[in-house]
Amino acid sequence: MSASVLFDAPGPRARRRSRIASAVVVVAVLAVLAWGIYILAQPRESGGITLPGFFDWSRWEKLVVDPEFWGAVGRGLLNTLQAAALAAVMALVVGVLFALLRTSPRKAVRIPTMIVLEFFRGMPVLLMMLFILLAFATGAFWAVVLALGIYNGALIGEALRAGIASLPRGQHEAGLSLGMTRLQTKMLIEFPQAFRQMLPIIVAQLVVLLKDTSLGYIVGYNELIRTTMNNLSSFYGNRYLFSLFAITLIIYLAVNLTLSWFARYLARRSMSGRAAKKIAGPADPNDATTE
């Protein structure tokens, strides 16, 4: 947002003021960071032993040089990605199914679907995971995958329905007048367009799905966070807890930022030419998803 409409291109005095304010902000941020680093670098007592600060090599050495450690982290990450991939496929299938039932011409189909959708959307995914885990005794992996698949399927279904609703009526009518059945019209004409239109929202929702696999930590699925914060921290000992947390955070940020960037790229591509100038900078596809 180099040229915002909210303020003029600054003159010399405004520029000076803005530079001073910027300097103050930078100093404040640096001060907070320095404080954080100072706290982390302090040696601390733990059970009668004084441990060196977190920037001391001894707090990392045993982890970083151990190939077994990276193997375990890799398996954790693989478990996370595996659950996310399977749940994503399922969410798409469930989403199409829900959208289909929700836009059915029959009231007897449409209204129960609406109630079921509201139910799934209104309760926490975590509760659904626990429910599947305990009531169907599926094991933690399937609890995570099924709950995420159904929950995100409900959200994607709503997105697809909105996409279909926004299509010109003529699309549906043209399909019918060509002699296609309602189902054919929906599958061959309406869904492909709705899907394309809603692609940024769907991809953003899939990023959320990936983040939500971390709930597996609570239901006992050995995904990345459970691997590092639970299994590896008890294997290597408490003194590595912070280092493990930092490594987990960096891996998650790397994976998620890549995916978010991809979502934004898709949005830009599908909006190119249509994007109007906005007051507060370019729109972000991730706006659409809040959880």
């Binding site: 915002s4 803005s18 304010a21 910027s22 939500d212 709930l215 966070i225 955070l249 900078g281």
Partner: peptide
């Protein structure tokens, strides 16, 4: 902060938003 005329403020707000939105709530 994000829409303010001071570049450092809007940069800080953007980074804050981006980092927190890409960290799982569990973490």
């Amino acid at each position: 902060m994000r829409i303010s005329p001071i570049p450092a403020l809007s940069r800080v707000a953007a980074i804050y938003t981006e980092l927190l939105r890409n960290t799982p709530l569990t973490l």
